[in-house]
Nucleic acid binder design. Structure first.
Ligand code: SF4
Ligand code: SF4
Lengths: 146, 146
DNA sequence: ATTAAATAATACCTGTAAGTATTAATTTAT
DNA sequence: ATAAATTAATACTTACAGGTATTATTTAAT
């Protein structure tokens, strides 16, 4: 499963917004582009707003823009705010308390994929979606659903 | 979230069984060792049995042993049978249909952690838990919960 | 001022994963 | 044969993530 559906939504929202950094986008705009269930999308936007990633302009002609610089927003922080990072950082077998000095048979095997995953989350920001360091082409979620 | 709770259970069950390959283990034995909710554990054992990883001996003095050689059981197959692998292999943003020849902004960033994860699942077998290639010490889930 | 168009708050509903309960079937010890 | 100890099948319940609905609030165009 990897990440929760809600995290997927959040990442899509913020990715699209990052690629349109200069434009204020309303829930309506984002709905038309991303096709996330409308009311749920609206709630998520409010959540992301409360979390301080974006800021809302209320009332007519309202919408959302980023509240912080893109290069300060790490994927780890986004996922952390949506579903928490502890489930990723903790034991892959779900053990909440474990003497890591005495690793079980599973431990070593999962270390590499786990670290690679977390490293990427912790070292990549939304700005990296724009500056081309890590990307090839334009965001294309919408036209996927044809 | 990474993998489902049920996958965690399944991995713990099979890991423990792998480290006690020679011994037939009953649901009771496994419950005492792993402390997975008893009735759920029993159902999972039946599932793992149906999936062909283990085979059941019914009736008095019954229990479970592996149905196949440990070095043929890849972690990818275990997780696939429990929750499916498609959610891992597919798009990290949850898009079911995507023109991968035209990757979106997210694609490249997730490629490495995703591949590392899948590579490990697909290249590691339960036998690797025994032969020491990948492990350091003995399984120690139980004493974790003190 | 009024209305329209947006976000915010809050409560509710739904689908699915996780867990429980009950009963049946199988095997072996006595 | 009977009873005990096990797995199997099936249906039910619970918890929580995901999604809806309703109403309130804010802002700007008219
Ligand atoms: S040693 Fe085993 S139980 Fe402990 S954190 Fe590592 S994988 Fe989990
Ligand atoms: S290109 Fe984007 S939408 Fe398509 S599979 Fe890759 S991450 Fe998903």
């Amino acid at each position: 499963m990897f990440i929760s559906k809600t995290s997927e939504h959040a990442l899509r929202i913020l990715t699209y917004m990052a690629l349109n950094y200069e434009t204020q986008l309303s829930a309506r705009n984002l709905f038309e582009e991303l096709q996330i269930p409308k009311r749920y999308l609206m709630r998520l936007l409010t959540d992301l707003s409360k979390s301080g990633f974006i800021k809302a302009a209320r009332g007519r002609n309202g919408g959302y823009v980023f509240a912080r610089s893109l290069d300060t927003i790490y994927f780890s922080e986004i996922i952390d705010s949506v579903e928490g990072l502890l489930t990723f950082e903790g034991c892959v077998l779900g053990s909440t308390v474990c003497p890591v000095d005495k690793p079980c048979a599973m431990h070593q095997i999962w270390e590499k994929p786990k670290q690679t995953f977390l490293e990427t989350l912790k070292s990549t920001t939304l700005a990296d979606l724009r500056n081309g360091k890590n990307i090839r082409l334009k965001y294309s979620i919408k036209q996927i659903h044809h």
